[in-house]
Amino acid sequence: MKNDGIKEVAIDDSGRLCIFPETEKFTYIYRTATEVHWDNKDMFLYSPKPREWSYLDWYKHIINVVKNECYCNLSLTKNTLFTNIPEILKKEILAL
């Protein structure tokens, strides 16, 4: 199993949760049919805009899909940036 840090966690202008790995690329993650996608231009994983799930649910889902389907542990680092993330969500993510 590979390990990679998370460079940034963000909510973009479209309302998608975005997770930027430090080095790994997940070009074929769409094949998992889990609604987790990869932006090949800007190199990040993303969810659809939340409908029924919260942002925290999507964060956990993305991390689990990457672990179980792509065999890579993504983890926060002391340098992880949080962009456009409400403080309460940041605290919930850090508590995981």
Rank of each mutant, 00 (worst) to 15 (best):
K91E: 14
K60F: 11
N64C: 12
D42Y: 15
K49Y: 11
S54P: 00
G15Q: 12
F82D: 03
T80D: 03
Y71R: 09
C70L: 10
E69C: 00
Y55K: 01
K91P: 06
V9S: 00
T32A: 05
E69I: 00
T83H: 13
K78H: 09
V36C: 04
P21S: 04
P48N: 10
S14C: 08
D12A: 05
Y30V: 04
A95F: 11
Y46S: 04
I62V: 09
V9A: 01
D4H: 10
Y28S: 07
D42T: 15
I88S: 04
L45M: 05
P21V: 06
Y71E: 12
N73H: 14
I19V: 14
D12H: 14
N79Y: 12
K67N: 07
T32G: 04
K60E: 12
T23G: 02
F20L: 01
T34P: 04
L17P: 01
N79W: 06
V36P: 03
R31M: 05
V36E: 01
E24G: 03
G15Y: 15
E8L: 01
K41H: 07
L74H: 06
N79S: 11
N84Y: 10
I29E: 04
Y30R: 02
L96F: 14
N40G: 06
D57I: 13
T80F: 14
D39Y: 15
S47I: 10
H37G: 08
F82R: 02
L81S: 08
T80M: 10
N40W: 07
I85G: 03
V66F: 13
E69H: 00
F44H: 13
F20K: 01
K25Q: 12
K25G: 08
